[in-house]
């Protein structure tokens, strides 16, 4: 047995924290203060209903070392209205961000080059008006950024990007977990035990 366990990732990198919660007022602040209190900047935050009814899912991206992220996830999961908190690095998830671009229509109509650029970047027209056209694309940050760069010379009027949404590659979803949470007396196999079983790979309590 090692004297003490050693942390693996000591370098800062992007981590995606996935939090399953009750849908209650005030929980956003409670979770946000977990980060602000430790002076950790949230790079992106998305919250919306999950696949399980009544359960919300937060997806939060931060840049930190693993040890910090692990402690944060524990503190988040400790909150009364939080069911689970997971954290993953970019290798363990599939993620997308959605971006919208507003461009003058005449530029688009006249310049074939622009159209080609849009095709190359997998963009889709959402709205076409006389004065402007709105395109949509989704992808990783670098991809959506690249299109901003490319559109800039053609009078990009406005640009907006959503937070990251991410699917954990080895996750089985939340339906089964929720059943366990609903039980007043959990069985031997419940979530809590993962904390001790696989505490080095995943955090969970």
């Amino acid at each position: 047995m090692p004297l003490r366990r050693i942390d693996i990732h000591m370098n800062k990198q992007e981590y995606t924290i996935t939090v399953y919660t009750e849908n209650h007022i005030g929980l956003l602040v409670r979770i946000a203060t977990m980060f602000s209190r430790r002076k950790i900047n949230i790079e992106s935050l998305n919250t919306s209903p999950s696949e399980a009814e009544g359960i919300h899912r937060f997806t939060i991206v931060i840049n930190e070392i693993e040890e910090v992220v692990q402690k944060l996830a524990r503190q988040i999961e400790k909150q009364v209205e939080v069911l689970k908190a997971y954290y993953n690095n970019n290798d363990e998830i599939v993620w997308q961000e959605l971006a919208l671009y507003k461009v003058p229509t005449d530029e688009i109509a006249e310049k074939v080059k622009v159209e080609r650029l849009l095709r190359e970047h997998g963009a889709r027209a959402v709205v076409i008006r006389k004065d402007y056209t709105i395109f949509e694309t989704s992808g990783h940050r670098e991809e959506t950024d690249k299109l901003v760069e490319v559109l800039a010379p053609y009078g990009l009027i406005e640009f907006v990007r959503s937070a990251r949404v991410a699917i954990i590659k080895n996750s089985k979803g939340f339906h089964e977990k929720l059943k366990e949470f609903d039980e007043a007396e959990p069985g031997e196999e419940v979530i809590e035990n993962e904390f001790l079983d696989r505490r080095e790979e995943v955090f969970t309590m």
Partner: peptide, 24 residues
Amino acid sequence: AKLIHLDIDPSEIDKNVKTTVGVW
């Protein structure tokens, strides 16, 4: 030292001092 930590709050285990065995 090897370190054993008995606590009811799992977020305390390994928070400040790394344990050899955490008893939650």
